[in-house]
Amino acid sequence: MINKKVPGVIEALEGVSDNMTLILGGFGLSGIPENSIAQLVKLNVKGLTCISNNAGVDDFGLGLLLQQKQIDKMISSYVGENDEFERQMLSGELEVELIPQGTLAERCRAAQAGFPAFYTPAGYGTEVAEGKEVREFDGKMHVLEYAFKADFGFVKAWKGDTAGNLIFKGTARNFNPNICGAAKITVAEVEELVPAGELDPNQIHIPGIFVQRIFQGALYEKRIEQRTVRQRN
């Protein structure tokens, strides 16, 4: 067994520095790497390019990095629900690149899988395709999109073992599995870290080969963005 376990979040983020490109998991606030984000805030690294589907809310998720003006550029598919984000974007302090959600996921997966680029129909004929190579396949136009290149990938899983194997829960899975192995170093934080051998190999979603560092996360808040319920009769 190759041991991927590090003592905690401090060791997990060793080597993170200014001007790096980071990919972070999560959809809205679900499945975000809360502990790694908190440590990025503590380290106060600046000039970051962050690739993540969303940008958090004002006081949680990536919104915490925005408050300290740590992010120079954000690559996302949807960035509503964040006033500070809007202010920085409109004032020009923050550069924002909006890309289709499926393209974002696939650019992660391409980096993970070793594909330099791929063609997708998403965005053809729109401003997203401006300046990009296009090509026709079977009578339909496609846009060439490139794999992401990033320094660190931060993911959150439900369970993991010391070999770096990961299991996700519910829709907190989202982009997290696609980010594993997409950056030079993948850091996984988990709600429950167990010794190698305790997880059933049949149930592993992401094999440890895609993960360089794994640590036991703490104090998960798991904030709900839109609490919707129905009444009992």
Partner: peptide, 18 residues
């Protein structure tokens, strides 16, 4: 939607609703 008290932050839709 879940019954009140049964919301799970790990189970949401694309509108971020439980």
């Amino acid at each position: 939607f879940p019954f009140e008290g049964e919301e799970d932050p790990d189970i949401i839709n694309a509108g971020k609703q439980t």
